[in-house]
């Protein structure tokens, strides 16, 4: 029987590759019986979907270029013109 720690790793891994049959079965069996790992697994999927959406946002947080950087970039662009 695998531990929750081991299962948590398999759950994460399943987001990055198709698990070998043996691991997949072990994970499913454990998840059927363990509500804590089920919650964790659900959160991993929620995290994935939140990140997927966050990755499409063009302005994730409001940051502003410093005046120095703004000037520097403008000068670099003018040189190229």
């Amino acid at each position: 029987m695998r531990t929750c720690k081991e299962i948590s790793k398999l759950v994460s891994e399943s987001l990055d590759r198709e698990l070998p049959l043996r691991e997949r079965m072990a994970m499913r069996l454990h998840l059927m019986m363990c509500s804590l790992c089920r919650t964790y697994s659900h959160q991993m999927r929620q995290l994935r979907s939140v990140l997927k959406k966050a990755s499409d946002v063009e302005t994730p947080t409001e940051q502003t270029l410093s005046e120095e950087a703004r000037l520097r970039i403008k000068q670099a662009l003018k040189k190229e013109e």
Binding site: E58, T59, P60, T61, E62, T64, R70, L77, K78, E81
Partner: peptide, 19 residues
């Protein structure tokens, strides 16, 4: 005009890059 580009898009690009 590159100057206008920096003013119009600079902050948004910077926010994206910093994230």
């Amino acid at each position: 005009d590159p100057e206008v580009w920096v003013d119009e898009h600079g902050d948004a690009l910077y926010s994206y890059a910093l994230s």
